[in-house]
Amino acid sequence: MRIECFRRNAEGLWVQYVYREGQEVYLASVNFRGAIADLYENMDFTQTLDEPGAERSAN
């Protein structure tokens, strides 16, 4: 599991930060700091989009 976060640096360029399982994630825009597992709490990843009944999001 991983999260990719983009932040604008002092020069105005977007920089990618990659967080991996076990690392603390910091999302400044929403003042969140915690484990990746905290972001995905109560999520069920056992069903894949290839399984019958799985729906794709329109977003």
Rank of each mutant, 00 (worst) to 15 (best):
Y26P: 03
A28W: 04
V25K: 02
G12H: 14
W14P: 12
D44Q: 00
V18E: 01
E21T: 06
D38Q: 09
A28M: 00
A37R: 14
R33F: 07
Q23E: 15
M43E: 03
W14L: 15
F32G: 09
S29F: 09
Y26W: 14
V30P: 03
E11M: 02
I36D: 00
F32W: 04
N42G: 01
E24C: 11
L27I: 15
Y40M: 06
R33C: 11
L27Y: 00
I36C: 08
F32V: 12
D38V: 03
D44G: 02
E21Y: 04
L39W: 02
R33I: 11
V18C: 04
V18R: 03
F32L: 10
E24M: 13
Y17L: 15
M43T: 01
A35E: 02
N42C: 05
E11G: 08
L39M: 03
S29G: 14
L39T: 01
V30C: 14
S29H: 11
G12L: 13
V18S: 04
V25P: 03
Y19G: 12
V18D: 03
Q23L: 02
Y40S: 06
V30A: 09
E21H: 07
A37D: 13
I36A: 02
F32Y: 10
L39D: 05
V30T: 10
G22E: 09
E21W: 01
N42L: 04
Y17N: 15
A37Q: 11
Q16P: 05
A35I: 01
A28E: 13
Y19L: 07
R33D: 08
V30D: 05
V30K: 11
V25Q: 05
S29K: 12
Q23M: 12
D44K: 03
E41V: 06
L13G: 03
R20M: 05
D44R: 06
M43G: 00
M43A: 06
G12Q: 12
G22V: 10
N42D: 11
A35P: 00
Y40F: 09
R20L: 08
G12V: 15
D44A: 00
D38A: 04
V30G: 05
R20A: 07
W14F: 14
A28S: 10
M43D: 00
N42H: 11
R20W: 10
Q23N: 13
E11N: 11
G34N: 11
A37G: 04
R33G: 07
Q23F: 09
S29D: 14
E21K: 06
N31Y: 02
L27H: 05
G22M: 10
G34V: 09
R20V: 13
Q16F: 02
W14V: 13
N31F: 05
E21F: 04
L13T: 07
S29N: 13
L39S: 04
V25F: 03
Y26I: 15
E24K: 14
N31P: 06
R20K: 08
V18H: 01
